[in-house]
Design a protein around this nucleic acid. Structure first.
Lengths: 335, 335
DNA sequence: CCTCATTCTTGAAACGATTCATTATTACGA
DNA sequence: TCGTAATAATGAATCGTTTCAAGAATGAGG
């Protein structure tokens, strides 16, 4: 059966549709006797306001789109939760899209969100696709880049200084005496990967005699990390790095899984290990993992706030917030 | 600037609105010359179809609501991803709501989704709130319970046999010779907790001399698990359980974190540990965790399929799918 | 009982798309 | 050239709200 409309309620209560609308939106304008009667009708008919029609009339929705690279990564699920909580405070809902690092799917979600006329889009972009995003903003949908700086300050953005994070992680390895450093990289098109790498390079350059090797992982996942670990175990001992910095915690946990499973290399004695993100599970790993912590909750909250800011004062230019990461030392670097 | 509407396109191309609509929906009905002209106008004006208006006319949306208990829990994020992927195959989008085990927030999302006229709602309910959900279905919004059986077969549901999972986990502890079993429970109102407990009780009852103690955790999180672990460490040795079954992996990892941090109790020698869910991180824990695996991807996919089923044949009754869990043995029970 | 001010209520217009009965155009054979 | 059939294009009606100018009802004061 078709759900009850405002018209049905009006008929049932013997008033005009405008009155029912007032009951819903401006109850103080309605005489209390009428109010009661209309509310009784609403209850009796089980009327639920059709938000689609409301949105059409209002010209905008109460939803915000969020596109993340990998919702299975605790970094993003934590971020998503924070964004959702913050949005809920303002009466908005968050629609989640998972691009899975796939530019095609990312585009698909951007299209979808634009058709749905979301208030704005928070996006952790696969690769900077400014043209599509610029078109979005040009048509009135606000955009905030998350975990990704805006190259030309074209959009508002919330990010963490990955270069400095990479520097901190590598400096720490050097500080505890490691000299043969290896960086476990994910695909090079991820700026998170290249930024962290360039931080690592800077740290290594400061210490004479230190070397940096780059190991390529196919992906930023536990599984890909295990692959890298397996290949390390097969190496001749003298060719092994003694300090390993992984582009994220999932990779680090994978590497750790592989090294400890085969019991040939000890962490941190043979290889010291540093991850990135400090996900909850880093602390309870086989060997508790030293990691670079990112303020996920703060990132999510700030992203929504920047969006709200843009909605409230559309003329203000884009604003970028950059957080500093923080090194958390644990047993994997021999605390 | 107001985004271009179908009317603007029609004016620009010198055709009627109906023709533009045909270009969008039935291009084969339009003469190729007109088609080109309209498409050129669409491109030039940057027209993007307003899905809100389309939905209003169509009477239904292309979105599905998903309400989970805790998106930070990998069990749910994995489930969400599977649901999203499956929905995308059918051209639908998933809107995510995180209730955080809060009945109030759950209700809020149900209301929101009903107002948005989602096609259906997948929900992992905080506590069975059948009345509200029944009202939903009565008004045409389909409901599928996820990770929760429907008590009266009132709704379609996808669940995993938690009683049998609890039995398997506990039986395994008994099989390796443990007799003083403890179950680390979360809040008792979660049926997942009570079902797993009753499975544990059944297993213990089968073995003469075995005992079962219930330890209460405040929450199903790593942090709460750590609290339980801390209190265990303080106990007199003779009063300690030798087999610990935790209501989920997060709790188990928390307990593990606490026990191994203080180095007073060894896993599995002093205490064997079993978790539940087999999240990705269970395998890479301090001591790789024995756990009961749930087929998250399958659950998510099936939930969407059950929903689709209901949408396509509205008269068919609700259908319930129950999956069997699977024990994955690792070092925490001394493989 | 009338007037005027105040408080409520009304109902048509608008939001932007889709639908479909109607009308216009084209193509073709006679 | 005309008639007919097939193909295209039209535009009003519709979906369920909100808005707002205008009208109706009420109440106070004289």
């Amino acid at each position: 059966m078709r759900p009850a409309s405002i018209k049905d309620v009006a008929n049932h209560a013997g008033v005009a549709v405008g009155t029912v609308s007032n009951v819903l939106n401006y109850p103080e304008r309605v005489a209390s006797k009428t109010l009661d009667r209309v509310q009784a009708s609403i209850a009796e008919l089980g009327f639920v306001r059709n938000d689609v029609a409301r949105q059409l009339r209002a010209g905008h929705s109460r939803t915000i789109g969020l596109i993340v690279l990998d919702i299975g990564n605790p970094f993003f699920s934590s971020l998503a939760r924070a964004a959702e909580d913050t949005a809920a405070e303002g009466g908005n809902a968050v629609v989640l899209g998972n691009s899975g690092h796939d530019a095609q799917r990312e585009l698909h979600y951007i299209d979808l969100f634009e058709e749905q006329r979301v208030q704005g889009v928070l996006i952790s972009p696969v690769a900077e696709n400014s043209k599509r995003l610029a078109a979005l903003t040009a048509r009135g949908t606000k955009v905030v880049l998350v975990d990704s700086p805006s190259s030309e300050d074209e959009f508002s953005s919330v990010s963490v200084d990955d270069v400095s994070g990479g520097y901190m992680a590598t400096k720490h390895l050097l500080d505890i005496g490691r000299r043969r450093i290896a960086f476990v990289a994910g695909p090079q098109q991820f700026h998170q990967v290249t930024d962290r790498l360039s931080g690592a390079m800077r740290a290594v350059a400061e210490v004479p005699g230190a070397t940096l090797e780059v190991l390529q992982a196919a992906d930023l996942t536990v599984l890909a990390g295990r692959g890298v670990g397996d290949s390390l175990v097969e190496r001749e001992r003298s060719l092994l790095p003694d300090g390993l910095f992984c582009a994220n915690d999932l990779l680090a946990l994978g590497v750790m899984q592989s090294l400890t499973m085969l019991h040939t290399l000890r962490i941190p004695q043979d290889v010291a290990l540093v991850g990135y993100d400090d996900i909850d599970f880093a602390a309870s790993a086989v060997v508790p993992l030293t990691s670079v912590r990112q303020p996920t909750t703060l990132i999510g909250r700030t992203a929504i706030e920047l969006l709200t800011e843009q909605l409230e004062s559309p003329d203000a230019g884009p604003r970028s917030v950059v957080f500093k990461p923080e090194l958390v030392v644990r047993a994997s670097t021999g605390s």
